[in-house]
Write a protein that binds this DNA or RNA. Structure first.
Lengths: 128, 128
DNA sequence: CGGAATCCGCGTAGATACTG
DNA sequence: CAGTATCTACGCGGATTCCG
């Protein structure tokens, strides 16, 4: 509880070192979580990921993979054959992140109907 | 585990009804989580929130509060006095969301040094 | 196959001014 | 006090083209 308090205070620091602002900024983007979950079952190749994650562009897949690699969540391995083969896999850190991330998404899934109901109610009450 | 599999498959649906894309889009923005955590200890007023959450603008606070209210995470109460007093508080749903969200942030906090180390290592290896 | 580079539109979010 | 309204800019992200 005192530990919780300590962290709660840090929530509102504008600081670059605020873990909340940092992690939300990093994995709160459009594709990070999706890529993370795409790799929980094992390594995969670039184009395989691209076709599994509907709607992602080549550009964003490359860019997001780089960012995740930079933060240590993903390991990139190049097999120097022709044509080249590149595999991406979660690191220990990446698998660690996937757990609480999954808890959150799982909660969202369980309460999806409830959220949609609230949305409809709100829109109904505030419509023209 | 079979339950996990079922959800894992739904990860990659481009569908609007995909809970992952939905929740990430909603609370993955710059301020939602911060506001959520700002209210876990009890209700608070608009300007009090504004000064507690460093760097947020009036516009974004209003807008994000509306979005959270729409999804049922927050209840807005107006006390018709002069000047008017408006209080925001978490709903049961909001408190429910705060739990897994806190787990995630807590994990990020615990591994913040490790992530920063990976970043430095990556930048070092790829600098020029 | 797995990118890099470039161009560009559109939405998010900041700043500012005004209001019940 | 708690907003609304408007204007603007910056960057996210999509589409396209080219390359080792």
């Amino acid at each position: 509880m005192s530990d919780t308090k300590t962290q709660a205070r840090r929530v509102f620091e504008q600081n670059e070192r605020c873990p909340i602002r940092n992690v939300v900024a990093q994995i709160g983007d459009k594709w990070s979580i999706l890529i993370l979950f795409a790799l929980v079952d094992g390594p995969d190749r670039f184009n395989a990921l691209k076709s599994r994650i509907q709607g992602i562009s080549q550009r964003m897949l490359t860019q997001t993979l780089r960012d995740l690699e930079r933060d240590g969540y993903i390991k990139r391995t190049v097999y120097p054959q022709v044509p080249v083969k590149v595999e991406y896999e979660l690191t220990e850190l990446g698998r660690g992140l996937a757990k609480p991330a999954w808890q959150l998404v799982s909660w969202a899934d369980d309460h999806f109907d409830e959220i949609n109901a609230a949305r409809t109610r709100y829109d109904e009450a505030n419509k023209q």
